[in-house]
Design a protein around this nucleic acid. Sequence first.
DNA 1: CACCATGCTACAATATTTGTAGCATGGTTA
DNA 2: TAACCATGCTACAAATATTGTAGCATGGTG
Lengths: 113, 113
Amino acid sequence: MTVPLPGSQVRGSQTGKPIMALLDLLGRTWALGIIWNLHSGPATFRELQQRCEKISPTLLNTRLKELKTLALIETKHAGYQLSPQGIDLFEIISPLGRWSSQWAQALKEESKS
Amino acid sequence: MTVPLPGSQVRGSQTGKPIMALLDLLGRTWALGIIWNLHSGPATFRELQQRCEKISPTLLNTRLKELKTLALIETKHAGYQLSPQGIDLFEIISPLGRWSSQWAQALKEESKS
DNA sequence: CACCATGCTACAATATTTGTAGCATGGTTA
DNA sequence: TAACCATGCTACAAATATTGTAGCATGGTG
């Protein structure tokens, strides 16, 4: 799988519209999970593996490379961490935390009736 | 693949925390793309297929079922459309449109230097 | 030098996604 | 009413992605 670089062809778009590149990236297994888990602070490879609970090292490494290429994460002495851009992105999606709770609640209600 | 119902075990979490169920769902190929494309209005199956440019009917159908089970989309006479919850979700992620452009720009600058 | 822990690769087994073909249903139109 | 559509969707094999386990290489520490 090639890195969904904005401007090049990506899944869902011939034109490489940035949003499509982004959706392609975020739609890959574990990409969102990694970003979400990194938000709570830098982590080493093995620690990140644990935060993600069940990711295989192969895939973790693959995603980390992609995310790095796309400047969403970076490596510092402390290990992997969100880049300023990554933080930006996280801030956009962070309301999903709250929203998902309400959603889960609503689904539960619904299944009762 | 089973539907990532909040409360049950999902990819990335034994406990079924809603956010994990959501990230599992959104992390599946095309899930975000479908939501994004539906935002511009209801669509029939075939039309949605075109909006997504390259999705296979098999997968489109699979995702639609999942999204429907999870109450993010619904079917009306006009075809498939976002449910109120789906709209809610879209509103959270809609800033990604703008953000992705800046991001693409930044990546371009960076690759120059 | 033995002993760890860490980052990461190898690789076969498994699961997901694609692509193409086409069936079944429900209108139109002739 | 019968020949046409278009539509929603399924079948299924080929192509890709992901997992899981084992383990190598490197860089500390005692």
